[in-house]
Amino acid sequence: MIELHIILFFMILAALIAVEMRGLLNSVIALGAVGMGLVLQFLLLRAPDLAIVQLVVEILILILLIRATVKLDRPSESTLKENWAYVLCLLLFAGVFLWFGYRALEGLPLFGAPEMNVSDYYISNAMEQTGAANIVTSILLDFRAYDTLGEVTVLFTSIVGAIAVLRKIGRKQ
């Protein structure tokens, strides 16, 4: 599984570049590299549904962020000074987080051997109970459709919120 390590290392590099680049447009494009690395990871991890969704969603996120930056970017904004107290606090937080994360990993099952108590039921019963060949879809729309309803509600609310924030009507000139 060396290719997973290589792609993940590439994603970390792209994330660092995205965070530290001067121009906003460069950062947005580097973020696209992170998302495309994630698509490759999903394909290698046998999740084709997620690869398709992540691919198209990443393109749409790039379009939205480029719309936010391309006309509005000003060169004077690229010379920002960070507060070093924040950086020190964050380094402390990152150290504590990574230490506890490392300790917590000891309780997880080993990589490549998951415990699938619930999923075994879904896998063995998906065909008889729902008749769908795609097990992910049968979980999404049949076994756990209530979660999907909540997800649709969240998406609806966020889109209505975005349209309400951006509309012209009722705004003082």
């Binding site: 719309r67 729902t130 008749g131 769908a132 879809t137 609806f156 889109i159 349209i163």
Partner: peptide, 29 residues
């Protein structure tokens, strides 16, 4: 023709996601 209501659920989500994201883009653009 399998999966019962799944075809209709998929089409409902298709209409909802497609139209909603396009509306956001139109407002932004």
């Amino acid at each position: 023709f399998s999966g019962g209501t799944m075809i209709f659920s998929n089409m409902a989500i298709f209409i909802k996601v497609g139209a909603g994201l396009f509306a956001v883009f139109v407002v932004l653009a």
